[in-house]
């Protein structure tokens, strides 16, 4: 059966031309896509990949879906992103850097960028600016959350995309999955955790490995941040500790000022 004839329940299944791009990032999300060898061939057969630096050598600028990982930290990335947007019908922000700025945006916490550069690069300064998520520059059609993204979730997203199903993420927080995994609550073990306010979908990846959540997937639909601040205090964690976590990936930026002023 050729690709164009593929159907599901009599409905033709699209095989979109897809390109993968990387802005400021560790490229870990792209690497994640190549994980899970058992399903890799089926996964790759859903798309016609025309640009994927980690996987294929051919290049083409003719694509419908652009998967962009990374954030914007240099001026030249802005026109690049805009040209991707101009070409792609669907632009997917892939991973915390693309969705929220990610770990890169931690430097935005410092008011003096020159001082930051000096600390990091010493006498070899490079060009850098305040870090922005993709949505600050272009319209983003779809976010794939996580640092890194979770392969199983991406498989589901792509399957639903080609079938024309909607992409729905859990609206509830990580606690839901953490409890389903029978974990002991990390607060009981003396560890701070953003699980109660962070969007689930990671299958409580970190808490299941006894590491408190750092909120890489951004806030759940009902993030009761104020209550979590109270809980952190009751468990002996300072407001600074909570802020460190909330600011780590940039997903909670809209809550930061409110918290600082409380």
């Amino acid at each position: 059966m050729t690709a164009s004839e593929k159907t599901y329940l009599g409905v033709p299944v699209r095989k979109p031309r897809a390109a993968f791009f990387s802005l400021t990032s560790c490229e870990g999300c792209q690497l994640q896509l190549l994980n899970n060898e058992a399903t890799l061939l089926d996964f790759l057969s859903l798309l016609t990949i025309v640009n994927f630096r980690e996987a294929v050598s051919e290049r083409s600028e003719n694509y419908e879906i652009a998967f962009v990982e990374g954030s914007i930290s240099r001026a030249d990335e802005i026109p690049r992103l805009k040209s991707i947007r101009a070409q792609a019908q669907t632009l997917v922000a892939m991973g915390s850097c693309a969705c929220f700025g990610g770990v890169n945006q931690l430097k935005n916490r410092f008011s003096d960028l020159d001082w930051v550069k000096k600390q990091v690069y010493g006498d070899h300064p490079i060009e850098t600016q305040d870090v922005l998520p993709l949505s600050a520059i272009v319209k983003v059609d779809l976010n794939i959350y996580g640092c890194p993204i979770k392969k199983e979730e991406v498989e589901k997203v792509i399957t639903n995309l080609v079938l024309g199903k909607s992409i729905d993420y859990p609206q509830y927080p990580v606690c839901m999955e953490c409890k389903a995994n029978q974990n002991v609550c990390l607060f009981d073990l003396g560890e701070p955790c953003l699980g109660p306010i962070t969007r689930a979908g990671c299958d409580s990846w970190c808490p299941s490995n006894r590491l408190g959540c750092w909120g890489c997937r951004g806030p759940a639909e009902t993030a009761n941040v104020r209550q979590l601040k109270q809980i952190m205090r009751e468990h002996g964690f300072s407001d600074e500790q909570m802020l460190d976590r909330l600011e780590c990936f940039g997903g909670f930026s809209k809550f930061i000022n409110e918290l600082k002023n409380q």
Partner: peptide
């Protein structure tokens, strides 16, 4: 106060 996290039901 509720975190709407579903822990109670779980």
């Amino acid at each position: 106060k509720c975190l709407s996290c579903g822990t109670c039901a779980n």
